[in-house]
Structure formats: C-alpha cells, structure tokens
Design a protein around this nucleic acid. Structure first.
Lengths: 113, 113
DNA sequence: ACTTAATAGTTGCGTATATGCATATATATA
DNA sequence: TATATATATGCATATACGCAACTATTAAGT
C-alpha cells in the first residue's frame, strides 16, 4: 500500500529543500566554495544546531556533500545545477518585484515621484 | 515590529510555491498553453476546490495570471522563466536519480543483473 | 599510555506554526 | 436554474526552531 512516488513528488521534494531562506543563504555562501559548519554558522548568525539540521536535510537529499577534515566537517554543493536553479529563481523574483513596483507606482503614482 | 523580508525570504516564497507536486503538474500542463480550471481539473484528477486553491496561490504570488472568458476562467504562466526553473529542477532530480542508482547498483550489484 | 578537557558537530524532543486536503457553502455568468 | 469557479472551515500532517544532551576528534597533563 506504499503509494509510489511520481516524478512530480520527487521534483517537489527537491524544491522543498530550496524553499527555506536559511537553506538558500547556505547555498549562496557555499557558491563561493566549501565551508565548515562553524563558518556557515558565523555567516548566518543562527544557532549551530539549526545550521546542522539544515545541512543534514540538504545532504540527505543529495544537494550538498560533506567530508571530515580533522575536527571540522566541510560542506560543499554536490551538483552545480542547483546553483543555476537558484539563480533562475532569483531572476523570477526580480522580475516579479519589478512588475510589482510598476503596479505599485501606477497605484500610488503621485507619491512615488 | 513587522520584520522586514530579506531577499532570501522572498526567494524562498517563490520556491515554496513550486514545492508542491500538484502545482508542478499544473505548471507542466500550462507549459503547453493556457487552460481553463476544468481542463486542469481533468488533467490532475483531483477535486476542483483543491485545484482552485493551488491556482489562487500561484496567481497571488505572480507565477500565474488569469482572465475571464464567459463562464470560464483561463489560467496561464505569467513568467516563462518559471518554466526554465522547473526544467532545471527536473535536471537536478534526474542527476540525483542517476547517482543514486549508481550507488544502488554498487551496493546490490550481484542482484541487479 | 591514560585521563581530562576543549572544540566541532550532531541528534533528540517539545512546541508553535504552516500547509494540503476534504467537505460545505458562496458567487458569478449564461 | 445550471455550470464554472471561488471561498470558508476544520483537521491532520509536516516543518522550523530552541534547548539540552550526546558523540567524536584533538590536545594537554600526569
């Protein structure tokens, strides 16, 4: 009775991983190159366990990979296409914001110079 | 006290819209061209209110747009970049699946022919 | 070599919040 | 009135977060 997962389900799971501000920020940080957990913690400025949880989610889904180096565990992006996907999302967002500000300026055009 | 939304928050909101199997299926259907709600209902095979809710979410976020034509309301994709983003996600997924099957065949290589 | 301590990271748990769906009801056009 | 679509409500599930406890690696002291 275990319902088989469709392509749509699987694709949604990937998207779900990227549907978190913190995780996007992590990916954005790792774009520059691999980093230790502590470095990521310092960048995000949130509690370590929270970062660790997000990293675990992304590692389990295959978005990130990790290796140990002495005391540290170093995370990096497993598949560069994820970065592309994120950039595209950002473009979509930026298009939306421009459209929205266009609309906003139509609605309040006197105020917005 | 209303916390200002960061770029990451906004981007996550876009991703969240795409983080649903049903919504991905809707986008996939609309890739071919605009469709009425009933047509989409027939394609997905789920209750009409459910479809309507998903459509509303995507319209409010600016992913879809709609217009009325007589009795029908016709939905279409507002920004083609969303389609690209979805394709990229699909590629990421397909890469993940290949890697995973590679790993799987290493682990169970005797059984898997 | 054995113990202790310190640092890095993970895991478990309780809770608050959000999301998806089903059912029922409402609105709009013809 | 009939058809197309939207909204409201309630519930079940999932998720993020904070906090506490745990594990693992390295270094220091004896």
């Amino acid at each position: 009775m275990t319902r088989e997962k469709s392509i749509y389900d699987l694709q949604a799971e990937i998207c779900k991983v990227l549907a978190s501000p913190k995780r996007i920020e992590i990916i954005s940080a790792l774009k520059e190159g691999e980093k230790t957990v502590t470095e990521i913690v310092d960048i995000l400025g949130i509690p370590k366990p929270n970062v660790s949880q997000h990293l675990a989610v992304m590692r389990l889904k295959g978005i990130l990979k990790s290796r140990r180096e002495g005391v540290n565990i170093i995370y990096s992006i497993a598949n560069p296409k994820v970065i592309q996907a994120c950039s595209l999302m950002r473009e979509v967002l930026s298009d939306l914001l421009t459209d929205r500000s266009k609309m906003a300026s139509l609605l309040t055009r006197s105020k917005s110079l």
